[in-house]
Every structure is written in structure tokens, then in C-alpha cells.
């Protein structure tokens, strides 16, 4: 690990310019040990009072320092936003969930092995260097929204559920603002090193959930191991039924793109319709129309189709979970 200076922040206003924020540290320290990143200054924010879950209007305000395990177990989250509990519980290990924070989880970096390996070309690590993943080993890589410069995926689970729940990210800094999670993470384009809209000097202070919408909520994660592995594909679903027809559908997808993916066309197709395999197949066709395989990750295209169809069957009551 490279040398750095260490500072403990006394307030949100007390963030030294240019310092890298550390909270849970579960991803940052891993990357620093590998010298994939080498901050000159760290600022520890874990003593700041950002660790509360509290009502905001009819919704919920989740402080940036709320630990993944506390959020997953929070009674209001379990009752009103179960897809969020399920997504959190599907991620990492008990030890890591006890350290990882809500804000840090949004800021976690890709697990593309070429990003982690400093001998390999990576436009994220070294802008302009090229992308060794393209034409390489691509099992974990994107099938949606990738570019010629980067095919990495956003690896997390929590943010996929937050996307389906229309969460908003609260940011403090020179100009405090709120950004829908949908706009928080960026597609790679020709600047894959720019992963979020967060600017230097800014900090995530909270994630806001709107009023609960009820319905059936599911988080279906497909991975290489039954536990403690990143998603190959995942589906977060919030589905409401009224008189045998779909009255609400919010569907977000993980493991397939540079950000939690959502396609309004898929959801509008489903609204007002009776659940059927034919309908769900059509939804998957729309979702996957822009999909592009990069070698061996081609399996993700049928896998995502099946995961979406299975999730919709389950959430609409066509079939109970095995």
C-alpha cells in the first residue's frame, strides 16, 4: 500500500480538498492494497452523524453511514421495502455487511479482473490505455450499455433494489443537491473512469426512499456460488396486481451493465396486462433488444431472459418460488 495522510473528519464541512473519503473501507482498502488506487490523503467520516434511518415525509431517509446489515434488518425496510432487505442480504458476507455503508456501497468499484490487475490495460485505471477485457475473459462483463472503451459492470446488489424503488441520492458539497439514483451512476461511454456524477468536494449524505408502493417485491440473484459471490445477473422487481392485471411494475437489473439497468419500455408493456409467459417473453425481448455479447458472456443474454421471466411469474403469482 502507498503512503497516505490520515484525517478524521469532524463535520461534513471538514473534508480536506483532494482527500479520498473512507467509511467501511471494504472496497477501498482492498484496492489500495493492490495499488489499483493510491490516494495521497484519506479522510475518515465514520464519526459523522450520518448513521440514522428516519422518516422523511411518507418515505425514508437512510444516512450514508448506515451499515448494510443494519439497513437489511431495519424493521421499516423489512416491512415496506423488502426488495431492499433481500438485495442487501444477497450481497457479500456477514462480516462485510457489518462494515459496508450505504454511501460506500453506491461508490464501490467494478470487479472487472482487468481493472484489478495493474499489468492489464484498463481505461478506468489509466484513461486512454485501452481495455484488455474486450477480447479477454468476459464471464462477468456487461451485455447492456457498454462501449468500445469499457465493458465492466457495476457489481452491487443494494443499488439495483434502490433503482427499482426510485431512490434519490442526497449530496452535500459546495452546491447541495439531490440526484435520482437513475442518474447517479453513468454509462462508460468514452470516459469509463468517471463512474458517478459525484464531483470532487462532494459527499453522499443520505439515500431517500419515496413512499412505499407495496406490491410483491423480489430480488433474484444468479451467481456462480450459492452465497458470497457477485451477481452474474440479478433482477429487482416491485410488482403490483389489480383484478388479475399488472398495475405496477418496477424492474431493475444487476450484473449486466455499468449501472443498475432499467428500461421503461419493458415496464409500460406489462402495465394493465394479464400475466402470461407470452407477455413475459415479449418483455424480455424488449429488454434484450440492445444486448450485445462480448465472447463468453453471451450466456448472460438467455440467463437474463430466464431470470426476468421467473421473477415475473413469481411476483405475479403464476408460480411460487421453489
Amino acid at each position: 500500500m502507498r503512503e497516505f495522510t490520515f484525517h478524521r473528519a469532524a463535520s461534513v464541512a471538514d473534508l480536506p480538498a483532494g482527500a479520498t473519503i473512507i467509511a467501511g473501507g471494504t472496497n477501498l482498502l482492498d484496492l489500495m492494497k493492490l495499488e489499483v488506487i493510491a490516494p495521497e490523503a484519506l479522510v475518515d467520516i465514520t464519526r459523522l452523524p450520518l448513521d440514522r434511518v428516519e422518516p422523511e415525509g411518507e418515505g425514508l431517509r437512510i444516512g450514508a453511514l448506515v451499515r448494510n446489515s443494519d439497513l437489511a434488518a431495519h424493521p421499516t425496510v423489512r416491512r415496506d421495502y423488502p426488495v431492499l432487505s433481500r438485495a442487501l442480504l444477497a450481497g457479500a458476507s456477514g462480516q462485510l455487511r457489518n462494515m459496508a455503508t450505504t454511501g460506500g456501497n453506491l461508490m464501490q468499484r467494478t470487479r472487472c479482473p482487468y481493472f484489478y490487475d495493474r499489468r492489464m490495460a484498463c481505461n478506468k485505471r489509466d484513461p486512454g490505455a485501452g481495455c484488455a477485457a474486450i477480447g479477454g475473459v468476459t464471464r462477468n462483463h456487461a451485455i447492456l450499455g457498454a462501449s468500445d472503451h469499457c465493458i465492466a459492470t457495476y457489481p452491487g446488489d443494494m443499488a439495483v433494489a434502490l433503482r427499482a424503488l426510485d431512490a434519490v441520492v442526497e449530496i452535500d458539497g459546495p452546491s447541495p443537491r439531490r440526484v435520482p439514483l437513475a442518474d447517479f451512476h453513468l454509462l462508460p461511454g468514452d470516459t469509463p473512469h468517471v463512474e458517478t456524477v459525484l464531483q470532487p468536494g462532494e459527499i453522499i449524505t443520505a439515500v431517500i426512499l419515496p413512499a412505499p408502493v407495496g406490491g410483491q417485491q423480489r430480488y433474484r440473484k444468479v451467481r456462480d456460488r450459492a452465497s458470497y459471490a457477485f451477481a452474474l445477473v440479478s433482477v429487482a422487481a416491485v410488482v403490483g396486481m389489480d383484478g388479475g392485471r399488472i398495475s405496477h411494475a418496477a424492474l431493475a437489473f444487476g450484473g449486466v451493465a455499468h449501472k443498475p439497468w432499467r428500461d421503461p419500455e419493458v415496464e409500460s408493456l406489462l402495465l394493465g396486462r394479464e400475466p402470461s409467459d407470452a407477455l413475459f417473453h415479449e418483455a424480455a425481448e424488449i429488454l434484450l433488444r440492445p444486448a450485445q455479447a462480448h465472447g463468453e458472456n453471451a450466456f448472460k443474454i438467455p440467463l437474463l431472459r430466464r431470470a426476468l421471466m421467473a421473477t415475473l411469474r413469481d411476483a405475479t403469482g403464476m408460480e411460487t418460488t421453489a
Binding site: 473501507g25 482498502l29 475518515d44 462480516q95 462494515m99
Partner: peptide
């Protein structure tokens, strides 16, 4: 009282 990974925690934190 909560389990964590000591390898991913800075002593100073």
C-alpha cells in the same frame, strides 16, 4: 460486539 474483517479495517479507524 459485531463481527468484521480485521484485514479490511485500518487500526487508526
Amino acid at each position: 460486539g459485531r463481527r468484521i474483517n480485521a484485514c479490511l479495517t485500518l487500526a487508526c479507524m
